[in-house]
């Protein structure tokens, strides 16, 4: 893998830091007058999602990380691994472990398309689509006619996610949810 010098750092570049693959979020060139230049860099650890702030001497370099994003369809879980299939026509299947699916485990709906991030061909994280449509499997009974008022109640969806929904939503109905905020968007007519 190639290595990249600080002057090649730009947002989105994938590099290795402390053994983990990271994506560069921000790179600021700092040079005090006649002093030594350095770069203030924000990197997102692609395994943990945490953002690191690091200072590098200008001209230092980091090894590139072999990181690729693929669109993949979620198939099923065998309890230990979660299986996905590429949608590029190859039908290639890959198994992601618990750590990779942790952040989106409550959105994993079969046949739905996800973005799977591979590092050295192994899945390290799975990103759900921004919006998913899921069936309500558990919630308090709906209140007739109460469609305009505020008020909300928790509802458990088919994938296990719990979101706040309006009072008029009933078990068996399908709702559209923003996966980034876990917020209810609207009811989907079947």
């Amino acid at each position: 893998m190639a290595s990249y010098s600080t002057n090649e750092f730009k947002s989105g570049l994938k590099v290795m830091l402390e053994g983990d693959p990271c994506s560069i979020v921000e790179n600021e060139f700092v040079k005090p007058g006649k002093g030594q230049a350095f770069n203030r860099v924000k990197l997102k650890n692609l395994k943990t999602g945490r953002v690191w702030e690091r200072t590098f001497k200008s001209g230092e370099s980091l090894e590139g990380a072999d990181v690729m994003d693929y669109d993949m369809e979620y198939l099923y879980t065998d309890g230990e691994y979660w299986h996905f299939m590429k949608t590029d026509g190859s039908y290639e299947q890959l198994a992601a472990d618990q750590a990779a699916v942790e952040d989106c485990i409550n959105w994993l709906k079969e046949t739905e398309k996800f973005t799977v991030t591979l590092w050295n061909d192994v899945p390290i994280s799975v990103t759900p689509p921004n919006f998913v449509e899921l069936e309500v499997v558990e919630t308090d009974p709906g209140l007739k006619g109460d469609t305009a008022q505020g008020g909300s109640k928790p509802a458990t969806l088919s994938t296990g996610a719990v979101v706040k929904v309006p009072l008029f939503i009933n078990i068996g109905e399908v709702v559209r949810v923003d996966t980034r905020t876990s917020e209810y968007q609207n009811r989907v007519k079947q």
């Binding site: 700092v30 005090p32 002093g35 030594q36 350095f38 200072t55 590098f56 001497k57």
Partner: peptide, 23 residues
């Protein structure tokens, strides 16, 4: 203070510290 361990010369260490917190 700032992971500024990459600097060795006194003038550079001072510059980096000043740029990080004071400037």
């Amino acid at each position: 203070f700032a992971h500024l361990d990459a600097f060795s010369r006194r003038a550079d260490v001072l510059d980096a510290l000043f740029a990080e917190a004071v400037e």
